[in-house]
């Protein structure tokens, strides 16, 4: 594509120094997200999904820090920003949505106070204008009777409504990029689909780029355009949703699909990947997945870990599944 992506992550490495050595929760991760596109990020717990999102928005908790790589927001490098310049970007050009809407909102401030504060911070509007804009933002995310509800406190909303408020807050200054870290995990199943549909609609209408972290392959299949599969801090596979879901290239992705109840794939029974993801402090040499991989050869066990670039295509794998065969592996 010739258009500059809204978010471009290049060979990002995040490290945590500990007494037992340096851990790499994010290791040489690269991906792009274009305007109006949703990139789904999946992977087991501890794979480094949140860490990647936090690195992008500059909210890594000490002692984790970016040690190498680049993060470009519409072409501008932002990975070295700190303090005031970084703060001005947050909310204004990139927003974040957290998992739990119950704890994401300040219980002692009304929804309107939290919205107008954010709007005034970034757009410098008068009180009256900011309030009108806040009401519009609430209406846009589907809060009924926004004009009356704006002066309510967060506890007066249900979980799903609160997540809508959170989305309104993240979007009220019209950022180009939204990082949504498991935005539906804490919600009722019936509400989950509504929130995903809302995100999808806002993404399309406003041309926002969305990084959608989730455990739910159903959500990925439903909402994402592209999907990134993470394993032990590394990108295992990156590609269009259709390709990755229908014919996974990395054996880990294939295993992940086989262990996910997804009606659309039409598989007969669930299969578990044997073993578990290694701890960051005890990663094996070579490909981090090889101890659990049926296709592993000696080549996978030695040398550097493959990356998507070195794996030559979609998957960071020396022996990727052939595109045609992957459908018969089940």
């Amino acid at each position: 594509m010739t258009k500059t992506p809204v978010l471009s992550v290049r060979d990002l490495i995040v490290e945590i120094p500990t007494r037992r050595g340096v851990l790499r929760p994010v290791d040489r991760v690269s991906y792009d997200i274009h305007s109006g596109q949703i990139l789904g990020v999946v992977g087991e717990s501890g794979a480094g999904k949140s860490m990647t999102g936090n690195a992008v928005i500059g909210l890594l908790d000490r002692p984790a820090r970016i040690t190498s790589g680049e993060i470009l927001l519409s072409g501008e490098p932002i990975h070295q920003l700190q303090g005031e310049p970084l703060r001005r970007l947050r909310g204004k050009r990139m927003g974040m949505i957290f998992q739990d809407p119950l704890t994401s909102l300040n219980p002692l401030l009304t929804v309107g106070e939290q919205l107008t504060e954010t709007i005034q911070e970034h757009l410098g509007l008068s009180n009256a204008d900011a309030r009108n804009r806040a009401i519009a933002a609430l209406e846009e995310v589907g809060i009924p009777a926004a004009r009356q509800r704006i002066d309510s406190y967060p506890h007066e909303f249900s979980g799903g409504m609160r997540q809508r408020v959170v989305i309104a807050l993240a979007l009220c200054a019209e950022p180009e990029l939204i990082i949504a870290d498991e935005p539906t995990t804490a919600l009722d199943v019936s509400v989950q689909a509504q929130i995903i549909a809302l995100l999808k609609r806002l993404c399309r209408e406003r041309g926002v780029a969305v990084m959608l972290v989730t455990h739910d392959m159903g959500v990925i299949a439903e909402a994402a355009d592209r999907v990134a599969v993470m394993y032990a801090g590394r990108l295992a596979e990156l590609g269009a949703v259709r390709d990755v879901v229908m014919s996974p290239s990395h054996p880990y992705t294939a295993g992940l699909m086989a262990s996910t109840p997804l009606a659309s794939i039409g598989q007969k029974r669930l299969r578990q990947i044997p073993g578990s993801m290694p701890r960051l402090g005890a990663l094996p040499d070579g490909c981090a997945f090889h101890p659990r991989c049926e296709r592993a050869t000696d080549q996978c066990k030695t040398g550097g870990s493959p990356t998507i670039a070195s794996g030559g295509g979609r998957a960071a794998c020396i022996h990727p599944l052939p595109a045609a065969k992957s459908e018969v592996t089940q």
Partner: peptide, 22 residues
Amino acid sequence: RMDYIRFARARGIRQRSIHFRH
């Protein structure tokens, strides 16, 4: 350490407001 403080940071709210208001 609460989520809503983190969320306020993610929205670019000023330190002063985060400390004294939130």
